[in-house]
Amino acid sequence: METLTPGGTSNKSPGAPAAEADVGKRFKKQSFWRTALQQKYLYFMSLPFIIWAFVFSYLPLWGWTMAFQDFKPAKPFLDQKWVGFKHFVELFSDDRFYLALRNTLAMSVMSLVVGFIVPIIFAVLLNELRGMMFKRFVQTVSYLPHFVSWVVVAGIVTKMLSTQGGAINDLLVGLHIINEPIQFMAKGNWFWYIVTASDVWKEMGWNTIIYLAAITGIDQEQYEAARVDGANRYRQMWHITLPGIRTTISVLFIMAIGHLMQIGFEKQFLLGNNLVQEYSQVLELYALQYGLQMNRFSYGTAISIFNSVVSVILLFTVNGIFKRVSKESIM
């Protein structure tokens, strides 16, 4: 799957897979313990953190037992009442859960598509800017909205889409594209798009940073060589830059798939209103309103277990597909 560029070497070293195979063969002959001893530094460098992760991430998972109890905070563990799958049954028989699930998936898929492609294009274009000052300035400015809270952004969006002096409606009416201002915020079917667009606006610059870092990892010699071969800018972008960050893209994509269920609720909550409820309710807000806010710890835990299980399944599936198709995976 290596994309070779005219006159240049690919960024991902062609040596790597070959070396891997060699190494594998050689090690088979050695005993496990001997290899382990040889790799003692690798163990020193990873084992402490594995234990760390075990303590802080895995130990608290005993909390999942709450989903199978009628959990009361004041009681000791052994005095809790065990109820099996009661809370899951309740969850799966609630219409509002399915509504929230639909909205969550719709918005996360939309933002996965748009919110993924736009920062990549932006990073590539930014990389092509010639003036260093301008490049740094644009980059700095573009990440600023990340630090503006959703409350503020939602306020700006609502004002821009307002029917009374909102910039978008004024523009559309002014250009005679529409006769009457559109009540954007009152229309449920617009809601997902508004959320996605706002999200791109706010996070585009921030999400670009990681690709920029990946682009700097591309060997400049490749560009030199391509220019010598007469490749124009589009060719360089298409054949050097994009392949150069392909691993990063794949890896981020796989991780993002795993997070499809976990998109937060803040932006939906702040951009939404009572008229678009049916499109704005998302899983995490549902879990909060119908779980924690009512002290239904067990119910809330059931939702988060559902989330985790689906996430992990999605993750392994997509990871497996990528592994087979492009040899790029995170595990």
Binding site: S162, T163, M185, A186, L275
Partner: peptide, 8 residues
């Protein structure tokens, strides 16, 4: 007001 239910 038309915006009663959408305004912040």
């Amino acid at each position: 007001d038309k915006e009663t239910f959408t305004q912040k």
